[in-house]
Design a protein around this nucleic acid. Structure first.
Lengths: 374, 374
DNA sequence: GTCACCGTTGAATCAGATC
DNA sequence: CGATCTGATTCAACGGTGA
């Protein structure tokens, strides 16, 4: 357990702990603007009428716990508005939230999120690869749950590790529908009687993807409906800090033991494929200053349809067009924008070479300098 | 065109016609309790800001039509409550409704449906096999839309052709996620300029499945946002009666011509199902997400000459080389390509085991899930 | 006729830093 | 705050062309 140091205006943040109590009260006691991500799996407001039996007459162990009973939509809405408001207060300006639910509650939750000022980024479908069938044959197999990913506000610069998720998906852009198995087998926690410790334990694979997507190592992740602590366990594995809030003593106990058993991954495994946007910017002028291209040298467009000459200040001059490598490229192509680094080529030994090669050389030198300074 | 005969209290029902005007007014002029099913594709209230360009600089033809503009959430909510109330009045007591939407509007619509007294049966995810990508890499590919299927009231004895849907799904119980392509090719209607006649035309396959699931031949299906008439065309094919309501003259014209061209199916010549599924692709990232290999764990090349570490996003890191299991293998071998699944091994009890074993385990689980549903 | 290749397109809340 | 500038970014399917 750790705490992040208190300042004059804000009390300390209780990191990697499970806090007891009502989540709204507990959240309101924490300092505002202090959390990077919230993952919330609120009660589903399931309206089950009587017991459900399988065709063989065995009873389905349904969610009928007292914490999931709400007398009406409006009382559920008040509950939802309350915890969403407290959650939004806790988030940093660039923070984000994930909420999971089913058709029983997710529409009310989603509308309340929009009303509270959250800005939707995606809705994500968790497509269960092994759902419970619909035994009565009266409806479709309820084979998915819905997640909503939203930033605290429209202007937020939210975290999204695009390249990492693309890597997770074998090199193609990750979609809004995720196929993952439900939580079963050894991962499913049991109580002392051998029954499932929590009726709706989420799979660690789901949290793994969420945390890789929308947090960085060292971020603070809060889960106001902690349950058996899947969020905390995966956060620990991935080197994120967590704050859990859970009302039920029994769940807190199971979660604490679970997280105690959990081990953090190697630091080397936590690094993730980065984005090109994060690489240092290299002005084209440096290429000229360093003599990699000489003033007066000709550059050729991709496809060799246009030419332009390098000038000493790192601009180009073509037919009546002067400007940066990007501006001249865009003008020639009649395009709204153009990446000059990949558009322009120079000639060496009769071969056309993209000028981006030169930028890569400069970046490699910069990295070498970095290492030398250590 | 036909009309169902008028009675003392109710005027005639204008079957297989496209009615002009505002859908709320037109619905209120029709006799209550007269319709078996409603399919509604209301405006989504997209809130698009500037232009969007693809990486090749072509401009995306966005939905910027006047009918999708609302000044605020509350004005959209009033619109939604209005048409839902009129729709519910029209439905027979055992009637049902389908509404389709995206994350921009579906949560508000779903909450309004519950508030209006509709009883949710399923939410259904239309997983698009060929969605538009996220061009800027800022979010997940928005690869699905959500449908809500609800009965007029909780006690309704709604229509559900369970066996027909099971047959449509190769004998396996139909799930709540449907993989269908978007509407392209010859099915996509064009205007006289060769541009798309409607920005959001839905595929006939989607309506086909909906009407097979929740109507019987001779049922009356109403679509208050008729557009280019997909609902009417599929209803005609399947021997259902339709009522379309559409405000825009241009859409009514296209829809009328389309339905005129459409032919009812032979009673005999019905289904053409049964496509072979290719062996499912398993991203290596799933092996990590599912905890079969831990981030930081070492993999060994075939022949044990090279090593690399697993990262949390399913990439490998070796000596200065990062990338997919295939890329790092190819780099080490100096080969143009490499099958990472057979190249890399992990160590268990001192033995080297190819990671392909893990892929086989995942595939076996996926197949077992299929069988379980029989 | 076949196949490889290329251009086009789809309900999208799609940039970020610096001046 | 706004204006300006750099430069990062896409997947599947369909249709047409030409070898």
């Amino acid at each position: 357990m750790t705490t992040r140091k208190a300042t004059a205006e804000a009390p300390a943040l209780p990191l990697n702990q499970i806090l007891a109590g009502d989540c709204i009260e507990v959240m309101n006691a924490l300092p505002e603007g202090s959390v990077d991500l919230i993952f919330a799996d609120p009660p589903y407001n399931l309206q089950l009428k009587g017991d459900l039996h399988r065709p063989d007459n065995s009873k389905v162990d349904a969610v009928d716990d007292h914490w999931d009973q709400f007398s009406s939509f409006s009382s559920y809405d008040r509950f939802t508005q309350g915890w969403l408001r407290a959650a939004r207060r806790l988030l940093k300006p660039n923070g984000a939230i994930w909420v999971i639910g089913s058709y029983h509650n997710i529409f009310r939750v989603g509308a309340a999120m929009q009303d509270a000022g959250f800005w939707m980024l995606n809705d994500v479908v968790w497509r269960k690869s092994n759902p419970m069938p619909n035994f009565k044959g009266k409806r479709l197999t309820n084979a998915h749950e819905t997640l909503i990913w939203a930033s605290r506000e429209e202007s937020a610069k939210y975290t999204f590790n695009y390249e990492a998720l693309k890597a997770l998906n074998d090199g193609v852009q990750m979609r809004s529908d995720w196929v993952l198995p439900i939580c079963t087998g050894h991962e499913r926690l049991k109580d002392d009687n051998g029954d499932k410790a929590h009726p709706t334990q989420k799979p660690e694979s789901l949290l793994h993807r969420i945390l890789i997507a929308s947090t960085n190592p060292g971020d603070v992740v809060l889960d106001p409906f902690f349950g058996t602590g899947t969020t905390g366990a995966v956060a620990k594995m991935l080197g994120r800090d967590f704050i859990g809030i859970e009302r039920e003593e029994a769940y807190r106990k199971v979660a604490a033991e679970r997280i105690e058993r959990t081990r953090k991954f190697d630091a080397s495994g936590l690094e993730v494929t980065g984005s090109k946007r994060a690489e240092p910017r290299v002005p084209f002028g440096q290429v000229v200053e360093r003599g990699m291209l000489r003033p007066g040298e000709e550059l050729f467009s991709i496809g060799n349809r246009f030419k332009a000459k390098v000038r000493a200040d790192g601009t180009l001059i073509g037919n009546d067009i002067k400007g940066s490598i990007h501006q001249v490229g865009a003008a020639y192509e009649g395009a709204p924008s153009c990446n000059g680094w990949t558009y322009w080529h120079f000639k060496r030994d009769g071969k056309m070479i993209p000028i981006d090669i030169l930028r890569q050389q400069i970046r490699a030198e910069m990295e070498a300098d970095q290492r030398q300074q250590h």
